[in-house]
């Protein structure tokens, strides 16, 4: 069944429609929600929705509970290759919990929260942006980490990043739901405007594994579920461009690097000169890597997780 949770008039002969697919079987009241498409250029979740629903349809008898899939919280953005909401200035993931008396989009955010509230688990799938490729990872606010990490470990990801509680992040969908005692995990993987089927399949395997642990799924699950590294066991390093230019990568994404390894060069095509050799400051895992070649000073190039740093300090 497909249910419309928001229907608001657009100026000329069109409704803004936000819909969810509901798949229900058995007697259990358990409910898991898969949401994606908050940013219209993040499409990795599209494959996850497809594959999850496809597998469920083929094996519905194993389901005991309700799976709700929201493939496009920002349908205008997804359908028009726009990260934000066309005609609206604010990032959709900075306006939750919304406002029933606010602008159309704030009102929409409010309705989305009302609909998701009370679920036993929400997985909020993001796909970086058009510039950076991300290893499959969960992002968890430090305040919620104790509760969410055990679930995040089940999702077949490579990394769990526990981040600080920045005030601005309080307006995200995930934070809002977590405050409302609806456990929500943000999954970040892949890259904007593309599908990475390997990552999508892994996450779908992880969602079935999670449902099994939640006793919503009695069917088969993947034999091998990845054990993610936890950011609390090390340190995350940010590599930003020190000069503007064009990036020529030297390493691929999701690789281990040694301190001093060349990550990429920033070059000046006009002069044929290398402007900066970007070297790894530590031994670690490249879990974020820039793929978009043009950089300005400050553009993020890579994030590296180093377990060694903390270990050395502890030693």
């Amino acid at each position: 069944m497909i249910k419309t949770i928001v229907s608001e008039g657009l100026p000329v002969d069109e409704q803004l429609l936000i819909r969810k697919k509901i798949i229900k079987n058995g007697d259990s009241d358990k409910r898991i929600c898969i949401v994606t498409g908050t940013h219209g250029d993040e499409l990795e979740g599209q494959y996850v929705c497809f594959e999850l629903i496809r597998r469920l349809n083929e094996n519905l008898d194993f389901l005991d509970g309700t799976v709700e899939v929201y493939p496009a919280l920002n349908p205008l953005g997804v359908d028009s290759v726009t990260r934000g909401i066309p005609t609206f200035d604010l990032d959709m993931n900075r306006i939750f919990p919304g406002d029933p008396n606010g602008h159309l989009i704030e009102h929409t955010a409010y309705e989305i929260i009302q609909d998701l509230k009370g679920a036993d688990m929400v997985i909020d799938i993001h796909a970086s942006n058009i510039f950076l490729r991300e290893m499959p990872q969960a992002r968890v606010n430090v305040k919620m980490s104790r509760k969410l990490i055990p679930y995040a470990r089940m999702l077949n990801l490579d990394f769990i990043w526990i981040h600080d509680a920045a005030t601005v992040l309080e307006a995200t969908l995930a934070h809002t739901l977590n405050v409302l005692k609806t456990p929500t995990i943000v999954v970040e993987m892949g890259i904007g405007m593309r599908l990475t089927l390997e990552y999508g399949n892994r996450l779908v395997d992880g969602i079935f594994n999670l449902m099994k642990k939640m006793k919503m799924w009695s069917g088969p699950v993947a034999n091998k579920i990845s054990k993610p590294k936890l950011s609390a066991t090390g340190e995350v390093f940010f590599m930003n461009a020190e000069v503007s230019g064009i990036i020529i990568p030297s390493v691929t994404h999701s690789v281990d690097v040694k301190k001093g390894d060349l990550l990429c060069q920033i070059v000046d095509p006009f002069e044929g000169k290398v402007l900066q050799n970007v070297l790894s400051p530590v031994d670690g895992l490249v879990f974020t890597m820039r793929t978009y070649p043009v950089v300005y000073e400050g553009s993020l190039i890579a994030r590296i997780f180093s377990e060694k740093t903390i270990n050395e300090e502890t030693a």
Partner: peptide
Amino acid sequence: MDNTDINRMFPGYEKGETTQ
């Protein structure tokens, strides 16, 4: 370049992203 809003980057970060 990246469609970020300078007025959502304060107090800024001198080693961060361009708009920061």
